[in-house]
Design a protein around this nucleic acid. Sequence first.
DNA 1: TTTTAATCGAGACGGTACGTCCTGTCTTTCT
DNA 2: AGAAAGACAGGACGTACCGTCTCGATTAAAA
Lengths: 200, 200, 200, 200
Amino acid sequence: MTGDTRRPHTGRRRNEAARRAILDVAVELLGRTDDAPVTIDTIAAAAGVGKQTIYRWWPSKGAVLLEAMAERAGHDIPVPDTGTLRGDLDEFLTATFRRAGMRLTATVLRHSMAEAQRDQHAREQMRAFVGARRDVLRGVLARARDRGEIAPDADLDLIVDQAYGVLWYRILTGHAPLGDADASRLARALSDQAAATLTP
Amino acid sequence: MTGDTRRPHTGRRRNEAARRAILDVAVELLGRTDDAPVTIDTIAAAAGVGKQTIYRWWPSKGAVLLEAMAERAGHDIPVPDTGTLRGDLDEFLTATFRRAGMRLTATVLRHSMAEAQRDQHAREQMRAFVGARRDVLRGVLARARDRGEIAPDADLDLIVDQAYGVLWYRILTGHAPLGDADASRLARALSDQAAATLTP
Amino acid sequence: MTGDTRRPHTGRRRNEAARRAILDVAVELLGRTDDAPVTIDTIAAAAGVGKQTIYRWWPSKGAVLLEAMAERAGHDIPVPDTGTLRGDLDEFLTATFRRAGMRLTATVLRHSMAEAQRDQHAREQMRAFVGARRDVLRGVLARARDRGEIAPDADLDLIVDQAYGVLWYRILTGHAPLGDADASRLARALSDQAAATLTP
Amino acid sequence: MTGDTRRPHTGRRRNEAARRAILDVAVELLGRTDDAPVTIDTIAAAAGVGKQTIYRWWPSKGAVLLEAMAERAGHDIPVPDTGTLRGDLDEFLTATFRRAGMRLTATVLRHSMAEAQRDQHAREQMRAFVGARRDVLRGVLARARDRGEIAPDADLDLIVDQAYGVLWYRILTGHAPLGDADASRLARALSDQAAATLTP
DNA sequence: TTTTAATCGAGACGGTACGTCCTGTCTTTCT
DNA sequence: AGAAAGACAGGACGTACCGTCTCGATTAAAA
């Protein structure tokens, strides 16, 4: 194969430090409890960056915010392997709820979801983020199915929705916190639900 | 004894027609699919009303939107009475999902929840709205408990959270529609949860 | 002629106290040095009067302001009679400059003239007020002409304009105060001017 | 030695075309006979400019209007040099009255003076404008003094005040136009005043 | 004495302008 | 070519004011 399509890319290369600063500042500003709205000018100023540098790499404000959110809220929830569905769910939901229950993360998630309702780019990124988290949880359930812990007619997507539904609903309305006990109780209820057969 | 709460109230009285027009227009504009954001100027113009008339009665744009939303989304979901928890839940969730699944209502709910994340007044009104809907569903569960259909240690709040959690989660992320089958399956799962004792 | 078009005018009569309060408050507010604009709401509130009571009797804000101004600034400048033009002018201009030089009056005049540039009613009332003051001064000059103190070809209108021109110019631009010495010097210059014949 | 006042000034530079458009539009709108008040929104729209671009460079509406006025009304009145005070005054006042008597200019002057009564910034700019015009006329008088045409005790400021006083007084009240004959007669009267000694 | 009509204080209303803020683009200079 | 600085067009925000329109209460002449 001779076709070397490598383009030399003349000119200055993207400044990775700026990218980091922008995303870090975005998370920090999004996480503020005071209702001061997060603006591009604020982000640029706090990151010591020109506005154009932001718009060169992201299509809109929402896109920046959502990428910042996804970075923070998506990673480092380990995929558990306790051997039982209930154990796996308990561990996973506890870790997930703990993370989402942190004040900073919760605020970031709240405002990101709000942004996703207005900004098309943010909407798509939220879709991708949510899809990725769902896939992880579905993976846990799929493993349990392979172990025979799950009824063949169980609606796994609904179970995933129940888990993340409780999480987002509480974060967005703030009517109750996300506690460890809630995670455990929910884990038990959902594993029971997954095991139940449809025939009454 | 007639309660003499007579207040003299000198001066012109609030124009009820204007109030209606404002809320109606707000819902109509909120429900538009095109992502043109709903503006106070737009509402005022479309309702044939001065901006000050809006700000005289509502503290912020979000407050208007939330009141309009609550009026539309809260009412006319009947409280069922089939005699069984599962039947009641099925009926209630089916009606609720159907309503929330309507394109107009869903759009209104989405943007209302987004607004509630930025606007303090909207936030409080969303809290009240969500609380009222939860109370209705809790009432259904409480009646079932009186009939002995519910385990004494069941966490009713968590059950309510799952029901509305699934609803909001799907509306906000749009990853799946709210179908009748979903409502029924969820009704069955939740009634089973409620009935289950902790000691398996 | 039998047509008695007298309409008896049943109903409540105009409240003279309210009229006085409105005009007094208008002068007081107009005379404030702080640049807070004088509004109808402010006048009404300070006079303890409803806005409609103002608009029932005056066609616009400017009309109220101008009437208030005219009341204050027009009266009680006595028409002098010293026997000579120079003496009359000195007395009249000194009294006029003293009155117009008072801080309160000056501020009222300034803002009235400004109002007269925007408000049609105010404009007409200013025209009438200015005309009346000019007539008084022209009267002084006419008397002097009857005494033979004035050249036949003197332009009395121009002399009047010079006198009031200096007054308004200084009030409006504030570049110099209106002092007694100015009045006297101007009186002398203008009486000389009136006496001079055109043929050099 | 070249003064090295080099300031790097990074960033986009002020758009001179926008500045011109704003001032031109301001004059044009100020000069309209219909009494529609001149609005910042109107100026911005007619100049094809965002409102912020106006407020970035001028502190208030009045400041824009006054700068536009000063540009139009101040320039191109030549300083005469006929050799005699009377000739100089005649030429200067005739040119000045002609310019101020133009319908457009008169309207602009009227509304500018009105604005200067309410707006602090406009007030200061009016002060500067008036001062500059006075200085020019004082220059004419000073030259005549050097030629020995003026009495040592003449009050030159009062003479200047009479000239501009008549101008503004007529423009603002509109009780008489500014004609060439008025200018000439005033020129003669004022030159006589300047020449007269106090002790006749 | 009752009726009728006009005025009053209070205050909501439609409309318009204000001056601020924010978005996403464009321009300039430097690296 | 990328970056910081910052001006730009556009447009929404929430406030202020104008002049009009109720509302219930008051006051005076007419019936």
